[in-house]
């Protein structure tokens, strides 16, 4: 009944707080009755995939929970739904948190730089936060309505049985393929990184030699993972575990990569003094822009998120290993 417990936990998260326990007890009773009826029909306990079938027939946990909310529960809508009631509490929490952090940051900045206190400096950052958070949640809501990516937000123990959808693997493969082609083309077409300054500047060969191959290998590993999940949608353990490793390794690489001077003056530069200045600007742009701290922070966070998604698969692996060892001990005991 691990799957049932996991499913009910996922439903519980989205139920109205006051009735949560009551609804859950009733839902649990209904599902147990269904499973028992099915077991009586078959004359044996249901296997995990069969239990999964019963639970999936019952519906996506978020959708099931949504039906228990009053029709006029809190949501964001202008004629049509922008953020549904199941996402609204999280949206409100994230928005309030972000706005509070922004207010405190602006306040500290004003104090540190001795800027006279006024309301005006707060408007733009708070406005940007509100627009960005609202935009992200509108997209999330749209994705939830259009597609079901149960694997990423569904019940933990059920995740191991949910096949990955093809559109997910294909879009990842295309994105990763474009990035790999871009990286492969850089040595031949340095303007892909340096832009119009490519004649005056060139990529530092010692730094690029050290990092080029490891980054390329990470891109290729990413492509291989997406191609494999496209061919084998049921191998859904591969996505979180490999993204955990690939993004983690990428975060380490990108942490060290921009600390070197990535661009040097080309020997063919017409005006070496001017090219020096240009190289300093380009290095700054690469260090704080294209390969800036945002990249390794993003990869590290992504790696941690995928580590979180890997948990049920890892637990399942340990459980099956324990069962196998237990069975082999039992056989040895019999012998």
């Amino acid at each position: 009944m691990d799957l049932l417990k996991s499913y009910l936990t996922a439903v519980k998260r989205n139920l109205p707080r006051k009735q949560r326990e009551d609804i859950l007890a009733e839902l649990s009773e209904e599902l147990r009755s269904q499973i028992e009826d099915r077991e009586r029909e078959l004359g044996r306990p249901l296997t995990d995939p069969e239990q999964y079938g019963v639970l999936m027939q019952h519906g996506d946990p978020m959708v099931v929970a949504r039906r228990y909310w009053p029709e006029r529960s809190r949501s964001l809508a202008i004629g049509w739904e922008l953020i549904g009631p199941e996402l609204f509490p999280t949206y409100a929490f994230v928005l309030i948190l972000n706005v509070c952090i922004t207010l405190v940051t602006v306040l500290v900045a004003l104090w540190v730089y001795h800027v006279p206190m006024a309301i005006k400096p707060f408007f733009l950052p708070v406005g940007i936060q509100m627009v960005c958070v609202t935009g992200i949640f509108i997209v999330l809501n749209m994705v939830r309505r259009k597609f079901t990516v149960n694997f990423l937000c569904g019940p933990a123990d059920l995740a191991s049985m949910m096949p990955l959808q093809r559109w997910y693997s294909i879009s990842g493969l295309v994105f990763c393929g474009v990035l790999t082609l871009w990286w492969l083309a850089i040595p031949r077409f340095q303007s892909l990184v340096l832009g119009p300054a490519a004649g005056e500047l060139e990529l530092s060969s010692s730094v690029w030699h050290r990092y080029y191959l490891p980054v390329l290998l990470l891109f290729l590993a990413g492509m291989a993972q997406r191609a494999t999940t496209l061919a084998r949608p049921h191998w859904n353990w591969l996505l979180p575990t490999s993204r955990f490793v690939i993004d983690g390794a990428g975060a380490v690489l990108m942490f060290f990569f921009p600390s070197h001077a990535l661009v040097v003056v080309s020997q063919a530069a017409a005006d070496p003094a001017q090219a020096e200045k240009l190289a300093a600007t380009a290095n700054n742009w690469l260090r704080w822009g294209l390969f800036g701290p945002w990249l390794w922070i993003y990869l590290a966070v992504s790696s941690l998120v995928y580590a979180w998604y890997s948990r049920p698969f890892f637990r399942r692996f340990l459980r099956s290993r324990r069962n196998r060892i237990g069975r082999s001990h039992a056989v040895n005991g019999l012998i």
């Binding site: 609804i23 019952h58 099931v64 228990y68």
Partner: peptide, 24 residues
Amino acid sequence: RYGYTLRKALADDGLEIDEGTLYP
């Protein structure tokens, strides 16, 4: 009746109703 038997009784009379609709 309780939920499960109610749903079965309705289904036996030709009115299928899924649990996601019945309980709310």
